[in-house]
Amino acid sequence: MISIDIEKKLKAYQGQQVLKISGEFATCSITKIYGPSGAGKTTFLKVIAGFVQPEKGNITVEGLTWLDTASKISLPPQKRMAGFVFQDYALFPNMTVLQHLQYATKDAAWIQRLLAIGKLETLATHKPEYLSGGQQQRLAILRALATKPKFLLMDEPFSALDPEMKVELINELKLIFNELGTTVFIVSHNPQELEGLAEHEMNIH
């Protein structure tokens, strides 16, 4: 079980607003998160990953406290090891596709499987600047999966994929999430694209 109860001030054009989110989520579940721009969807994911500190809150993941502002507990991102797919991909310009995955894991068989899922085997020696937007986005997803995370946070992960590739990848991801027992939060502007993948939903407004 994952329990989240946070309060985080957001800077907005009209002044400050407070992002308040509270809820319990079953492990191995997939939740889609949607809402208007600027509502704090990305900030919510970054709070969970440990990149951003909220003013108040608790996050407990399978009995382990990741965050408790009252007791001044906040595990660093390295200890939380939540997989993260960034909206801007955040690929490392100095690394090839293969090096991205090797940086994350030493498991060669797993790397080969990920490359096959992302259809990037033939591009293994390419750096991000020589990949298309869709290929970069797939690499970002594969890198986040490379550590076999128990918690995966995805920020608009399918926005650059063509419909065919999206359906194929989503089917593969479903299998992997199931196999790894991964709990997944997916932020999307287009909740319909996640039909059949996410069983739960959360509206942030």
């Binding site: 990953a49 090891m81 993260f84 960034f86 490392f92 940086y103």
Partner: peptide, 26 residues
């Protein structure tokens, strides 16, 4: 971009590893 360091931290890498393997080469 700050997301480069964050991506490295999310893979369990320390600040030193991130500096040496991600920031410095770029």
């Amino acid at each position: 971009p700050v997301s480069l360091s964050q991506a490295s931290y999310s893979l369990g890498k320390t600040k030193w590893q991130t500096f040496m393997h991600v920031l410095l080469p770029n």
